[in-house]
Design a binder for these strands. Structure first.
Lengths: 335, 335
DNA sequence: CTGAAAGCGCTTACAG
DNA sequence: CTGAAAGCGCTTACAG
């Protein structure tokens, strides 16, 4: 930078100001500087900038503590967050742990390497939120902490389940079961399990369905067992709405084992899966796909906006777009 | 740090030296300093350290350019690399793009934020390797660039396919097909497709199998079609060794469609899948699981060793450990 | 519209 | 074994 200044015949501060744009610079001066910069192949040193400005332009993504089996969607989150950070002129570091104790966070903050953090899979009353606030470290949330204050991005379950129910209703289904996640997740204040269920039930009621909700542990075997139970006897459901990726394989397997064809005998819609996984299944699953890239991007934008006190997207609820694939069809006349 | 020095009654350089351990410090002095440090809750500022020492202790992980469908294994890579970095007192940033042009890399280097980069899914003659070398940016490789010089970590296909073949042989299988990836991947110099095939064939020959290898595009439909072809007529294989995650679902579906039970009628072993995906399938797949955490950790250790000129693991070839699950059994007498 | 200078919080030769 | 001081490459009041 000193070299650039010398070559352009100006002071280093002037060079710095053309870079930041924080001060009006005359046309000729600016051109001289710009010319000098690329003759010298000048690259501003981010570390020096960080030290002087106290902004590293590095943000952290705190990965899910005990990954709730987001599966490939989590990879989408990570990639998209990195992309978003990059397009906002930031870098993204990964935090795999050390978000639990206040000491770890203080350490993170003390290092000065990270300007703020994006929290994934925030739960109701998530302790991390309070800790970050106490430390004065900027943050942004994916998931609703249930406090009302901090802006967050999350799924809009009402607008997610509405289209799912409408779609099945339109095909002629009248009897459906919502396969939720385990009761444990429910108890842990994991928001989606209660909100999704409420949304499903509201919509099922709206269209006058004969429906019910069941919880299912996150395991193929649990899914298979559950599925057999659901399908025995008369009056079995013609449609399954499943928000449980880990159990899904077992459900599909059990269906096949019972000689029930997909989608001829039973329609299945998966909720909150990654689009890639849903389309990789055979037959490809009709599903309400988790918009992980969008969520990640919004969360990063929120954080960067906080840091530069720019305009933020704020709290945003996104529906999971419904994608019609091969696992849904009209029910048979008399199931 | 100034405060710590003042409180301990020493110079800042002494404080710095107790931190780095680069200089012998007397017992009493050290204790005074240590005491002062935690009374003041001192946290060394990583950015200042980086600027002064020209080592940021940040390394980058370059994600697969057009993710070859590593699936969940890629997430394992990312997590494990971050963990490894952390345990070696480094941070991991994610590079999602900008590894292609030399200008991007020069930019990365110029910023001074990143000490080195870990490259995933390195191909034979990977251009990124040369570019990094030209720029003098430290790097570490996952995958064999085929130049012999740079150390890298990769899969040992011989020791991966050996146990797979032995296992099937032990069960009594004599006729097997190796379902490789697409011919395109082969042509692109993607090492695993040629090395895995050679290893499979060597071992199949060793045990005197009646075997063949087929290529298959990375899509369930392609897998299903291929599978139907393989299974028609007499003398069909009793075992399938599949190194093609994307086609796998189609293969399993086609088997079911043909009324062939897994594993009663056909045994299937998946190679290079993530352990999580293999065990989530129904039935759970016997597989040679990609040791992504180990590979990631070794690669990070190699890089950090380069940076601190410490002892490096060097070039390491790891077998994919075979895990017996539910998709393999003895073949029927007369298939 | 531009400059001179202090300072961000460390590291590391140079001296003793 | 310890200190004084220059310097890493920028930013940003303070002055003009």
């Amino acid at each position: 930078m000193k070299d650039v200044a010398a070559r352009a015949g100006v002071s280093v501060s002037t060079v710095s100001y053309v870079l930041s744009g924080d001060r009006p610079i005359s046309g000729p001066t600016r051109s001289k500087i710009l010319a000098a910069m690329d003759e010298l192949q000048f690259r501003p040193n981010a570390v020096a900038r960080a030290l002087a400005s106290k902004r590293s332009r590095v943000i952290a993504l705190a990965l899910s503590p005990h990954s709730r089996g987001l599966g490939l969607a989590e990879l989408d989150f990570v990639r998209s967050a990195a992309d978003a950070a990059r397009s906002l002129d930031h870098h993204l570091v990964l935090l795999t742990e050390g978000m639990d104790s206040e000491a770890d966070l203080a350490h993170l903050r003390g290092q000065g390497l990270v300007d703020g953090v994006v929290l994934m899979e925030v739960r109701l009353g998530d302790p991390r939120v309070d800790q970050l606030r106490r430390l004065g470290l900027a943050f942004s949330l994916i998931g609703n902490p249930g406090e009302g204050e901090a802006p967050f991005v999350d799924i809009d379950f009402d607008r997610t389940l509405g289209p799912v129910v409408d779609q099945l209703e339109g095909l002629g289904h009248r009897r459906a079961v919502f396969v939720n996640q385990g009761a444990g997740a429910h108890a842990a204040g994991y928001g989606p399990v209660v909100r999704a269920q409420r949304a499903f039930e509201d919509h099922a009621r709206r269209v006058g369905w004969d429906f019910r909700t069941v919880f299912c542990e996150a395991h193929p075997r649990a899914g298979a067992e559950l599925c057999r139970g659901l399908m025995e006897g008369t009056g079995r459901p013609t449609a399954l709405v499943v928000m449980n990726d880990q159990a899904l394989g077992g459900i599909l397997q059990a269906l096949a084992g019972l000689g029930l064809g997909l989608p001829e005998d039973v329609s299945v819609v998966s909720v909150l899966t990654s689009a890639l996984e849903a389309s990789r299944a055979v037959p490809a699953l009709s599903s309400a796909d988790l918009p992980s890239p969008q969520l990640a991007r919004l969360a990063v934008e929120n954080l960067v906006a906080t840091l530069s006190s720019g305009p933020a997207p704020g709290t945003v609820l996104l529906p999971c777009p419904f994608n019609l694939r091969e696992s849904t069809s009209r029910p048979k006349e008399n199931p």
